[in-house]
Amino acid sequence: PEEVRRLVEELYRKGVSPEQVKKILKKQGIDEREIEKVLRRIG
């Protein structure tokens, strides 16, 4: 979803590592598979 992409990109631009991005967003209840999809697209 758009909102997940925005959150991931925001953290990524701040220099947060992909592993940390995953941890942070998982705590917020976001599906890990969604996060990984976005990270793959960015990375």
Rank of each mutant, 00 (worst) to 15 (best):
I35P: 00
G29E: 02
E19A: 11
I24K: 05
E34I: 14
L25I: 02
Y12H: 06
I24V: 09
K26F: 09
R40W: 06
L39N: 01
L39D: 01
E9I: 15
R5Y: 15
R41G: 15
G29M: 04
S17Y: 06
Q20I: 08
R13K: 09
G29F: 03
E2N: 09
R13I: 05
R13H: 08
I30W: 13
E19F: 08
E36G: 02
D31N: 07
G15Y: 03
R41L: 15
G15E: 02
L7A: 07
L39I: 07
L39E: 01
R41H: 15
R40M: 10
L25Q: 00
P1E: 14
G29Y: 02
D31Y: 03
R41Y: 15
R5K: 12
D31E: 07
P18W: 10
I35M: 02
I35Y: 02
G43R: 14
P1Y: 14
V8R: 00
P18V: 11
R6H: 07
E10H: 10
E36R: 03
I42N: 03
D31G: 06
R13G: 06
R6E: 06
Q20G: 10
K14W: 10
I42A: 05
G15K: 06
E36L: 05
K23Q: 13
E32I: 06
I42D: 03
E10K: 12
R6T: 07
G43T: 13
K27M: 14
E32T: 05
K27Y: 09
Q28H: 07
K27G: 12
R33Y: 06
I24F: 09
G15A: 03
E3S: 10
E32P: 08
K22D: 01
R40T: 08
Y12F: 13
R6Y: 07
K23A: 14
K37D: 15
V38R: 01
I35K: 00
R5D: 09
Q28N: 07
R5Q: 13
E32M: 05
V38D: 01
P18I: 11
E10Y: 14
R5L: 12
D31F: 02
P1L: 13
L39Q: 04
E19S: 13
P18F: 10
L25M: 04
K23E: 12
